[in-house]
Design a protein around this nucleic acid. Structure first.
Length: 463
RNA sequence: GGUCGGAUGGCCGAGAGGCGAGGCUCAGGACUGCAAAUCCUGCCACACGGGUUCAAAUCCCGUUCCGACCUCCA
């Protein structure tokens, strides 16, 4: 499988070779946020996972069109609007910005397009017209529009369930539905709620319909990869498939789902009250690049058990790599190149095996450190290029300008001042006055500056 | 009831028939005036009970425990 990307497909439950519908191009649709609350780290893990996929596809030579939608109208947003005594659109915008801020702090690249549901009502109506015309959907007359699941050629193929095995919905309202499992494409307007006119009455989009409509709009009838969290498999993705296939579209060629961030083994979620918001963690002084390293470090299909202890462990690991790159840059006199080692590429091509890829980084760091000690700058440069290449795919390249603002201060005046103190200390060391030398080191350490004596001289860094 | 995942050393986290990924922690060593950093060595784990096999963490059967979804969800 060397050199060829293999990915898991939830639909077939097998890892197999990724073949794009159009050579050289990849279309991805990832279900984004319903903007009804600030993002917690589980939401952003999804963003990070698919960002790594996108970066690797791009590095592999594909022209990637990536969509991540914003669901800016739904029940929860309307409830929140009542709660916050603000218009629904203000609530949606507020949390959309909170998500974008979180994505930015973790260096998740903006998708190619980021469509909002409310901007695509026209496309949704067109899709419903098609589904009603071919008999797949019906409008019972109250303003709702439903998809008739019994008429589908196939249904629940992604979650491998049988229609009759589903637990009967407790609140199934059969007033308008032909079958309790028929799902709403469109919901009739309630008094006071926002609505858009349609041929079947005023109302607002159903959750599932928006994703199908937006995917078709930007990626066409068929596209390569559809992603999202595990919990979206049923009903959301099943229903997207149902609508799209009923409309005669090929829809997604491959399904990818990321696993949870858990606490005490349980899924992190707002409703369970165990969620941790991104900004709460960053407020504790965790750098965005370190949080990203942590969230990206587990395989995307594995649960990631969150704790501040393991986050700290992960950060320590990252700082070691970062320190190597810094030293290597000094040795080779310029920023390392960006290269992908065979070991790294093989790991990434094997269903984005990031943990295995991490092992290749550690090995390169080890060899690079040995080369620094040996003064072999050619090997240092080669190792550093490999490390930097890997970090760039993981979105954790310290020299990425996305993190520049979060980086250590490189202030000439500060450097001059510290250099002054270092000169004093080195003078003391030269006359073997180690008490004086250590006192200077301790004082500077109290100010948060760490001093290290190396064969190349004394260096300092901000703790 | 149906569907789908898990259980790996002090901790995090890979692997999917043979050779103990990697990281963190801890212990020892090299280097250093001492530190720090770095490197080296050590700490030999796969829920339980059977089975298949020359060989099982990995395959098969059974058991226990944990979690996810079943119309709100990353």
């Amino acid at each position: 499988m060397a050199g060829q990307l293999h990915l898991y497909d939830t639909a077939t439950r097998v890892v197999d070779q990724f073949l794009p519908l159009t050579p050289g191009k990849v279309g991805i649709y990832v279900c984004g946020a319903t903007v009804q609350a600030p993002p917690h780290i589980g939401h952003i893990r999804s963003g990070v996972n698919f960002d790594i996929l996108r970066r690797w596809l791009t590095a592999s030579g594909y022209e990637v069109t990536m969509l991540r939608n914003v669901t800016d109208i739904d029940d929860k947003i309307l409830h929140k609007a009542v709660h916050e005594a603000a218009p629904w659109w203000a609530v949606a915008m507020k949390y959309e910005r909170a998500f974008n801020a979180a994505y930015t702090s973790l260096n998740v690249l903006p998708p190619t397009y980021e469509p909002r549901a409310t901007g695509h009502v026209t496309q949704m109506i067109e899709l419903m017209e098609k589904l009603i015309a071919n008999g797949s959907a019906y409008a019972p007359g109250n303003g709702d529009v439903y998809l008739e699941v019994r008429k589908l050629k196939r249904y629940l193929t992604l979650s491998n369930q049988k229609l009759d095995d589903l637990q009967p919905a407790e609140d199934a309202d059969l007033t308008h539905k032909r079958d309790p499992r028929d799902f709403a494409l469109w919901k009739a307007a309630k008094a006071g709620d926002p609505s858009w006119p349609t041929p079947w009455g005023a109302g607002r989009p159903g959750w599932h319909l928006e994703c199908s409509a937006m995917a078709h709009t930007y990626l066409g009838e068929s596209f390569d990869i559809h992603g999202g969290g595990l919990d979206l498999i049923f009903p959301h993705h099943e229903n997207e498939i149902a609508q799209s296939e009923a409309a005669g579209y090929g829809f997604a060629n491959r399904w990818m789902h990321n696993a949870w961030v858990t606490t005490s083994g349980e899924k992190m979620s707002k409703s369970l009250g165990n969620s941790l918001q991104i900004h709460e963690i960053l407020k504790k002084g965790v750098r965005g690049i370190e949080l990203r390293w942590y969230l990206g470090s587990a395989h995307y299909r594995s649960m990631l058990e969150f704790s501040f202890e393991s986050l700290e462990e992960s950060s320590i690991n990252f700082r070691r790599i970062e320190a190597f790159l810094k030293r290597a840059t000094e040795v080779i006199g310029s920023a390392p190149e960006i290269k992908y080692s065979q070991a790294f590429a093989d790991a990434m091509n094997d269903d984005l095996a990031v943990p295995t890829a991490l092992a290749s980084i550690s090995e390169a760091v080890r060899l690079g450190n040995i080369a620094i000690t040996a003064g072999d700058s050619a090997v240092v440069a080669a190792c550093a290029a490999e490390v930097r290449g890997a970090l760039s795919i993981l979105g954790c390249d310290p020299s990425d300008e996305a993190f520049a603002a979060q980086g250590a201060a490189n202030n000439e005046a500060l450097d001059g001042l510290i250099q002054l103190a270092l000169d004093q200390r080195n003078a003391a060391r030269a006359r073997k006055d180690f008490a004086a030398a250590d006192a200077i080191r301790d004082q500077i350490l109290h100010l948060g500056i760490l001093i290290e004596d190396t064969p190349q001289g004394t260096r300092w860094s901000i703790q």
